[in-house]
Structures are given as structure tokens and as C-alpha cells.
């Protein structure tokens, strides 16, 4: 990583700390800020957060590895999370997964070659009465059909 990039990340974290404070409990909001901006939390960013909050890097890594919405490796610009829990499964999640995989030529758990989409399964989204459901970035889509799912993804830049 270039020194300039490193300095930029440090500055961003310092900005986040001004907003959220430097208590241990500010860890998750700070990590979310980084995740939002860079779509991942790099090794260096984790160590910088640890230094600025005066905790150990492994504690930051422990938190990052615990939460499914935080990740250490770069992902696509848009993250598609399809609910895999039982009600959505019964309502036809498999067909939707297959349609999306065919459309994007990319398997679940992977990122498309143009880095536009990352596909993931998620556990219950709380939309059991309106399944199957998925989240694209921060937006929830319910009552999916294979055609509707493909349509939604094609509208995303």
C-alpha cells in the first residue's frame, strides 16, 4: 500500500473518531464507516483503528470476522444478499439463486469479474411473510420471482 493511501486512511479514521469518540464502544460505527467507503476493511485500516482506539489489532480482527457485514477482502461495488433461511427456501429461493447466477455468470460466494456484484447468502432478513427476499446494498426487495430479481439487478449501476 502506498504511503499516501495509508495517510488518507488514517485521516478518515481520525475523522470517524471525531464523530464517534475514541471509546472502545465506538469500534463498530468506525468500522462501518470504513466498510461503507472502501467496501472492505484492509489489514492496515484494522491496525490503525486499533492504534487510535488503544486496543489490540487482534481485537479489531475478532470483531470484523464476527460480523457478516464487515469483510477484510475487497468485494464488488454492490453486494447482493439472498435470504437462505427456511421460509424463503420453501418459497423458491433456489430458483432465484439460479436465475441470478445465470444472469451474472457468477456463483454465490463470489464476485463478478467486472467487480460490479458480489453474491452472498444471508440468514433470516425478517421478511418471512413476504419471501423470497434479498438485500441489495441497503435496500430490501421482497416477493421475488426469478424475472423480478434479474430485473432489479439490471437496473443497478
Amino acid at each position: 500500500m502506498l504511503v499516501l493511501e495509508k495517510n488518507a486512511i488514517t485521516e478518515e479514521i481520525e475523522e470517524s473518531i471525531k464523530l464517534h469518540g475514541n471509546n472502545r464502544s465506538a469500534l463498530i460505527p468506525i468500522l462501518q464507516d470504513i466498510q461503507r467507503k472502501h467496501s472492505h476493511i484492509s489489514d492496515f485500516a484494522q491496525q490503525e483503528v486499533a492504534r487510535l482506539l488503544d486496543i489490540h489489532p487482534v481485537e479489531v480482527y475478532s470483531v470484523v470476522s464476527f460480523y457478516a457485514f464487515l469483510n477484510t477482502k475487497p468485494k464488488g461495488r454492490n453486494i447482493v444478499r439472498l435470504c437462505q433461511t427456511i421460509t424463503c427456501d420453501l418459497q423458491g429461493k433456489a430458483a432465484i439463486a439460479k436465475a441470478i447466477e445465470r444472469e451474472l455468470n457468477c456463483k454465490f460466494g463470489e464476485t463478478t469479474q467486472d467487480k460490479k456484484f458480489s453474491l452472498e447468502f444471508a440468514n433470516c432478513l425478517g421478511m418471512c411473510d413476504q419471501g423470497p427476499a434479498m438485500i441489495v446494498n441497503d435496500k430490501v426487495y421482497s416477493h421475488l420471482t426469478p424475472e423480478k430479481a434479474v430485473q432489479i439487478l439490471s437496473n443497478i449501476k
Partner: peptide, 19 residues
């Protein structure tokens, strides 16, 4: 010193080091 921490979640939890 801060070398070991629980990493991962659920049945994937393990004690591990940074990265």
C-alpha cells in the same frame, strides 16, 4: 500483548491471531 482472540462466529469460532 494482544496476540490471541476468538475469531469467527458460531461453530466456526476459533482462537486465532491477527489475520
Amino acid at each position: 500483548v494482544g496476540v490471541l482472540e476468538a475469531v469467527g462466529r458460531g461453530d466456526q469460532t476459533r482462537i486465532s491471531t491477527f489475520l
